[in-house]
Design a protein around this nucleic acid. Structure first.
Lengths: 338, 338
DNA sequence: ACCGTTACCGCAAACGGTTGCGGTAACGGT
DNA sequence: ACCGTTACCGCAACCGTTTGCGGTAACGGT
């Protein structure tokens, strides 16, 4: 660090007053005389005094900062949620520290520890793909650290969360394909441990059964979320199942699936209709445009912050709460069979 | 904050030793007896002592944290760069605080201030689209705060930076189209104030001139980087210029342009060939696959951190340095005319 | 026994800012 | 004049951790 930063000591010395007076003047405390306050503020501006947030936080034993951990910031959903979270937190006078786990459990553990040491007052977390062991989350909860999960959670974790009804959303998506004439529908899932994928799979299953179609595990193909693996799994599905409809667990999966279908010379939606989840902006730029379940990501971010701040600002332990937001199937060309 | 966190005071009291001994034992200082050290570490683990990073940083007058500000984390390029930056920083024992400006100048100013107050030791910044006034950056430089710009920079800022040769990259992309038979090539630019767009435009211009084709400003269409605006501008270009080739300033622009072309019933690349920049993973999933200039984003992140840490760890002011990385045109279906 | 050296700590101050409480001067009421 | 109240500060301790320096006991050499 070059050049010594200006501190309240410098201002106090220059004005021949105490540092507590400088501190109080800068915070507009009423017991400080107007002329003193004016002089302090004027000099602070001249010297470009910038408060040391570390010191302030330590002295007040409070940071007013929340930690946010998401699997990957390049996913539209998480990036958009983060924007919403940042906005809501800023409105409430809180700062946000952002970490991504890169779908790694170990990274998630490290991030939590670093954020805790940084004295964040609470956590907003969406679980990484590799997370199977929840002891790091349980430890947070034992310490009664404020926590809200969103989007990706686990049944083993009894924490407050903001989610969408994945089962219902998948039910609707699948039913949409069935109503559009699809007879055989495959499901492109994420990794088997990922609850969000499992729930969408259940909704798919229920829709089949409601329409008198027998569900079989051979209709389900698990991907690891990467492009290459998804292309392979799609080709495998076309080879073994040959469906006329595909429910993909997310847009990113669907992008790869559609690519694979086209490589195979299949027309979308005439030969195979496709519907997926997340409604990324690029869905409207594909050819054909992609039908996708839209999640209220803005509302999710706002709600997540609200619930977390309620925990932080409340001295007593609050009951665990689950907030379920509605989804909306956006029908586009990829599933418009007729 | 529920439950009072364990501090070294608790450990000192329990073992009837001083807090300085606890501190030294935890840091493995040689002057502390082995038995003392063992007892301290054992108790710290039992009590799950977690050091208060704020206090540590304040006491050492050092955070070993760098601030990173990018325009938008959902852009593949910045997200990938961040991954690389985080990795390099971690290897060097530094933490990273991440902010996004959402392409807003004001947000960029606020982010810089907050990070400074948080006592970051240096900055890695890629300028926001709206940034026209560089006084906030000049102020950083006057304070001799370590700074490295990457990707998006400005000629008005005499700071160390890591960039690619945008002119040469665009020259190659344009030449590629010309060599593939394109006679009339349009340029889909970003906002006029964005240097990165201007430089790519210059390379485009020089390639035209090298091949004896007169450059005209009517070949250039500026977008604001949004999907809707880009679709409109593309249609406008097709209407007024009717080119058989398009150089798009980035993949995101190209996605929208390709969509617009398809909507208009044009074939890519038979009627209009397309080439762009950034080589996002999704380029390989489009139909046709998109030709795109690849930037060594991994290397960029590593280099940016190396240059910044050199500034931070060096007491003397270092000369300004510009590191230019090579690009690579990845030819795919969208420009494969023959 | 005496003295020099070393091991092993503890005290106190530092980091930059916040805050409780008490001191003092001024003012107004009696 | 005296006393109660209020305005306006300053002192000192705090936050959690680090670090310079000095104190003391033990040990070994003379």
């Amino acid at each position: 660090m070059k050049g010594t930063p200006v501190t309240i000591k410098d201002i106090a010395k220059a004005l021949n007053i105490s540092i507590s007076t400088v501190s109080r003047a800068l915070r507009g405390m009423p017991e400080i005389h107007e002329s003193t306050r004016t002089a302090v503020i004027k000099l602070a501006e001249e010297l470009d005094y910038q408060p040391n947030q570390l010191a302030k936080n330590l002295a007040k034993s409070r940071t007013k900062t929340i930690g946010v951990i998401v699997p990957n910031l390049s996913y539209y959903f998480f990036s958009a949620a983060l924007n919403s979270i940042e906005e809501a937190a800023m409105q409430a006078g809180y700062s946000v520290m952002v970490c991504q786990s890169n779908e790694s459990y170990l990274r998630e553990v490290t991030n939590i520890q670093n954020l805790l040491r940084g004295q964040v007052e609470g956590f907003i977390i969406s679980l990484a793909r590799d997370t199977n062991d929840y002891s790091h989350i349980h430890k947070l909860m034992r310490k009664e650290v404020p926590l809200v999960l969103f989007d990706r959670y686990a049944d083993e974790i009894e924490a407050t969360k903001v989610i969408v009804n994945n089962k219902e959303a998948a039910f609707k998506a699948t039913e949409h394909l069935l109503e559009n004439g699809c007879k055989k529908i495959g499901f492109l899932a994420g990794p088997p441990n990922l609850l969000i994928s499992t729930q969408r799979l259940m909704g798919y299953k229920e829709a089949l059964e409601k329409h008198g179609i027998a569900f079989s595990n051979t209709n389900v193909f698990h991907t690891d979320f990467t492009q290459d693996n998804t292309v392979i799994k799609t080709l495998e599905m076309m080879s073994t199942l040959n469906p006329d409809g595909i429910v993909a667990v997310s847009d990113r999966i669907a992008f790869s699936a559609m690519f694979a279908l086209k490589q195979k010379g299949l027309r979308i939606p005439e030969d195979v209709a496709v519907v997926s989840f997340n409604n990324e902006p690029i869905c409207t730029l594909l050819s054909p445009t992609l039908s996708s379940v839209s999640q209220p990501v803005q509302e999710m971010g706002t709600e997540v912050v609200r619930l977390l701040l309620r925990q932080i600002e409340n001295e007593h332990k609050l009951p665990v709460e689950t907030k379920i937001l509605e989804t909306n199937l956006i029908v586009r060309e990829s599933s418009a069979r007729k």
